[in-house]
């Protein structure tokens, strides 16, 4: 099967305070086909942003393989990374710190084309103008500085910058989380439209399940550095198999009081354990409403259940 991103048994450990390393990502495998959007959801500390950063080579993995467009970038040289990054680009969470405040947005958008020798002078300027139009801005905006734009407009600039090299994979790390509701809709529509037009694959990292469901083809649910479940979107939301997926979906308040108040959901008890000291066995067993004694001992492997892959003894 052809893939644009193939991650195999990825581990990313950070040195922890006082001894035990923080196992931010601990044995994750996943892949993305060309043109496909994979959603990566989970709560803070689950390792989803770490995977996003490792996938673009901004973070060196402890072990495992990360194959982007046929090249393994785990431990790759700066030269190889530079080549691969023509294929994979990133959109960050905070539109304010994503743009250099002392650089015009036109320079920022055209920078990758310029330093890679793909365009210069009038041709570069024309290309930047096209990119600005593609994301719903005007070519004459190119000479302005970031502070002259609103948050939503800045995120459009960031998207234009990421698209300049026509990447085969776009990694969005909480790309709409910092935006207001009405602006978020604009950016989501833009991402969906751009993907339809250019057919790039996306790794869409978010804590917001409704947003992930809206833009993704498949969804991977992470808990404490490991995959709990990975399944096609409709299967995952219609019939979540992992108790954590079920709890996560149940915890999203529906913006319709009639629906929301009719739901009978028992909130998940307890806190998220520390990734420096994850529970033995299934990492979710300390909060799991259906856990049995085996869950505290045996680590559940990811296995096929219907259309889904689930890491649960009871699924």
């Amino acid at each position: 099967m052809e893939t644009i991103l193939e991650i195999t048994d990825l581990r990313v450990h950070f040195p922890g305070r006082g001894g035990a390393p923080v196992r931010a990502v601990d044995g994750v495998s996943l892949h993305i086909a060309p043109g496909e959007t994979l959603g990566l959801v989970g709560e803070s500390g689950c390792g989803k942003s770490t995977i996003a950063n490792a996938a673009v080579g901004l973070l060196a993995p402890t072990s495992g393989r990360i194959v982007v467009a046929g090249t393994d970038i785990a431990g790759a040289s700066p030269r190889v990374l530079r080549e691969v990054r023509a294929q994979v680009q990133m959109v960050f969470q905070d539109p304010i710190t994503s743009l250099n405040p002392r650089m015009t947005i036109g320079t920022a958008i055209g920078e990758s084309l310029l330093v890679r020798g793909r365009a210069a002078g009038a041709a570069l300027r024309a290309r930047v103008g096209e990119l600005l139009q593609e994301v719903g801005l005007r070519p004459d905006h190119a000479d302005r500085y970031p502070h002259q734009f609103s948050g939503g407009q800045r995120q459009r600039v960031v998207i234009a910058r990421a698209l300049a090299l026509r990447p085969a994979l776009l990694v969005c790390d909480e790309a709409v989380s910092a935006l207001d509701v009405s602006v978020r809709a604009q950016i989501l529509n833009l991402l969906v439209a751009l993907q339809a037009r250019y057919g790039m694959a996306m790794l869409f990292v978010s804590h917001d399940l409704a947003v992930v469901r809206h833009v993704c083809d498949r969804v991977a649910v992470m808990y404490l550095g490991q995959l709990a479940e990975i399944a096609p979107r409709d299967a995952l939301f219609a019939a979540p198999r992992h108790p954590y997926t079920q709890a996560l979906i149940a915890a999203v308040p529906d913006p319709d009081p009639a629906v929301q108040r009719a739901r009978v959901s028992v909130p998940l008890v307890g806190e998220i354990p520390s990734p420096a000291n994850p529970p033995p066995g299934c990492r979710f067993h300390t909060r799991c409403p259906v856990a049995v004694s085996r869950c505290a001992v045996d680590v559940p492997a990811l296995r096929s259940v219907g259309a889904a892959m689930v890491a649960c003894h009871l699924a």
């Binding site: 509701v181 009405s182 809709a185 947003v211 833009v215 979107r233 939301f237 999203v252 529906d254 913006p255």
Partner: peptide, 11 residues
């Protein structure tokens, strides 16, 4: 109407 919901049509 601008909020994505678990019940809307994806994309």
């Amino acid at each position: 109407a601008s909020i994505p919901r678990l019940s809307d049509v994806p994309k």
